[in-house]
Amino acid sequence: MNRWIPKCLLLNFFIYFSVSLSRIPRIGIGGPVGSGKTMLIEQMVPILKHEGYDVGIISNDVVSKEDAERMRKNLATEKGLMPEDLVIGIATGGCPHTAVREDPSINISVVEEMEIKHPNLDLIIIESGGDNITTTFSPALADYFIYIIDVSGGDKYPRKRGLGIETCDLLVINKIDIASFIGADLGVMERDAKIIRRDKPFVFVNSKTGQGVREATDYVIKDVLFNAPPKSKIKI
């Protein structure tokens, strides 16, 4: 019984090490259906690419292929920013929250396949299927969690809280362009967000025009990539 512990520890060390050596930083993007997850990714990737970072995308949207197809068409086929096989859609059996939280095994296996096939990627983005406000990402799946809401639900969010809004690493408040149409007061949202988020960041964004996306992307570069130079720029 005594010898069991060090043996086990050693193995865990081995697994941890072999995993961490090839682990590519991953961010998870969660948020209600239609809040703009896909569109935010479509805006962030060109900025990241411009900085030299190569990105892979895994989308878990409920009717899977649709979002993946859209991004593949937009980012890979038309803009040529990435190979088509770097945009992957995964169905979640109607359990979008399970797939990123309590049983992320399928997402992890796809991430690992991507890591083996494309070891030079700088970042992998995982879009969760649209869900309610209790979504969070398993730390085994994502290193950084962006939660995105839009103003169309009214300025009661983020005051209403919810696990996603409170615990995420970065809160994105999207569609500020339509705030005035639906009578949502951005000032109220900013005040409430400051209270709820304390010192954790949030940004206002218009994913249609790209306003605010640069700021959100800078958080990713600073807090996920730690300002590391892109792998493709590192000379050996």
């Binding site: 995964i90 979640t92 059996g93 359990c95 309590e102 399928i106 296996s109």
Partner: peptide, 11 residues
Amino acid sequence: SFFPTGLYTNS
């Protein structure tokens, strides 16, 4: 079925 192997994604 709580054991995490992703079987819930299969029909």
